[in-house]
Design a protein around this nucleic acid. Sequence first.
DNA 1: TTTAGTACCTTGCGATACAAGGTATCAAAA
DNA 2: TTTTGATACCTTGTATCGCAAGGTACTAAA
Lengths: 110, 110
Amino acid sequence: MTENNIENIKSQMRRGVLEYCILSVLDKNDAYASELINKLKDAHIIVVEGTLYPLLTRQKNQGLLAYRWEESTQGPPRKYYTLTDKGREVLQEMDKAWKEIVETLDILRK
Amino acid sequence: MTENNIENIKSQMRRGVLEYCILSVLDKNDAYASELINKLKDAHIIVVEGTLYPLLTRQKNQGLLAYRWEESTQGPPRKYYTLTDKGREVLQEMDKAWKEIVETLDILRK
DNA sequence: TTTAGTACCTTGCGATACAAGGTATCAAAA
DNA sequence: TTTTGATACCTTGTATCGCAAGGTACTAAA
């Protein structure tokens, strides 16, 4: 029960920064969806397909991301996402917002 | 539009830590709902009644909080919430979870 | 030609944040 | 003594969104 509680809370915290994480990863390198899932899993940010695909579409529709198709010899073509200029701007705003929240919690929890 | 975007993102981040903030505030002092709203507003964590009341009830049902009624000379009686032992345990788990996420983002955003 | 691996995407359910509206108490003004 | 304003509680309805589950399609190897 308590365990469940905590898992719930963790995933809630993660959810809050998920979009931030995605833009952060893409800021370093373009990536396709499955690749993103693995990179985020490595960073202990769990995200599943049913969450990521709609989210990427949303961010693309907001003009934060663009994509291109690339052939693969290993299977079907890959949809590589890349940050747009607007995406980079928003990422900077996210940096600020994140900093504020971290400071807020420092104070609340001091 | 972009502004809206950012507001959205900020509130998403805040949401992720809302329960953490509530327990943190109550860890310092017992408080009643309206008081909590003001304290959180001061800390730039916006939360409205329609969000807070169900949330407090949930946390109480999970055994994290208890409450007592206190008379007030200024209006209707106040429902003072207080952390339970379990609430304090969970708060410590939240501290860990939060630390992890902050570290994760440090790495992702380095 | 079937199986395994990779990659894409959608549907349906449940949880939940928030706007809006409602009830009740007390004190002071009209 | 009734009305107003301030304080405090709580609920309802809508919309969003995360996630489990299920589905399609391409490639290579068995």
